[in-house]
């Protein structure tokens, strides 16, 4: 009991060192995985396999979520805007909300849950079953063979998924606003086209999702690589991936939004 104060300070110091150490290791990890060219003839095949696992398999959840979020936005927007008699602006509202915020952010969150956790678990399992060590002993760098293709697949997939998410959402919004609520389709689209700027809105949204892709994939892959090679360690790492990635995406979103708009 006497030493509790110093104990606590020491604990603080130790966890601080832990955090710094982890950050350093993850940075070195990222650099070693991405620096230099792949030494494999079939690097393209490896990437394709991961694009399938990370990107194609995430399509369903992205499309369905995008559709519903677009529909909900249109419904809510219509209810609010019709109070001012400007329900034709619903298209503009749906499009801007999706492109600037919800598209990149929700895609990143869903991606962290769907693909990120799967990446962590898969790599953690490969570590636990000594497949990573085995690769090392065969003379193959697991950072290049296992990690790098997964990182690239994440970087490439998420922006594409975000774009698909936006399009599906806008289409879903049009379905609700135009077909159901009876907003004139010409004003839905022309209002949207007049207010949405390609550079300002579409490209900035794309940049956001590229940044999120980088952060989420990095966290997911590193957590898998760095986890305790036990079943308990893997499950903890998977949880950490989702939590850290979500927090990182939301805070990064604030920073990017402040810088961009």
């Amino acid at each position: 009991m006497k030493a509790s104060m110093t104990d606590r300070i020491a604990l603080l110091g130790r966890s601080g060192l832990d955090v710094v150490g982890t950050l350093g290791r993850s940075g070195i990890f990222l650099f070693q995985a991405l620096a230099g060219r792949s030494q494999f003839g079939n690097a393209f095949g490896l990437l394709v396999r991961q694009l399938y696992a990370v990107g194609v398999l995430s399509m369903v959840i992205i499309v369905v979520s995008g559709l519903f979020i677009g529909m909900v936005l249109a419904l809510q927007g219509y209810n609010i805007l019709s109070g001012y008699g400007s329900e034709q602006a619903v298209g503009q509202m749906v499009a801007l909300t999706l492109l600037r915020e919800l598209g990149p952010v929700v895609t990143a969150l869903l991606f962290a849950g769907r693909a990120g956790s799967a990446l962590t678990a898969e790599i953690g399992l490969m570590k636990a079953t000594e497949q990573l060590s085995s690769l090392e002993m065969i003379g193959v760098d697991p950072l290049k063979y296992v990690i790098a293709p997964r990182l690239w697949a994440g970087f490439i997939s998420m922006p594409l998924l975000a774009m698909i998410f936006c399009v599906v959402g806008i289409w879903g919004g049009a379905m609700v606003a135009v077909d159901w609520l009876g907003v004139y389709s010409g004003s839905y689209w022309s209002n949207m086209q007049n207010s949405v700027q390609f550079g300002e809105d579409v490209l900035n949204g794309l940049i956001k999702s590229v940044a999120f892709a980088f952060v989420v994939t990095w966290i997911a892959v590193f957590q898998g690589y760095d986890c305790d090679p036990t079943s308990e360690g893997i499950s903890r790492a998977t949880t950490r991936t989702v939590v850290y990635a979500s927090l990182a995406v939301l805070s990064l979103d604030f920073i990017l939004t402040a810088l961009m708009f």
Partner: peptide, 19 residues
Amino acid sequence: LFEARQQMGMLFQSGALFT
């Protein structure tokens, strides 16, 4: 090191086959 490891083979406890 990766060069040198080509001279070594290791059989892991679990087999560690690529699943």
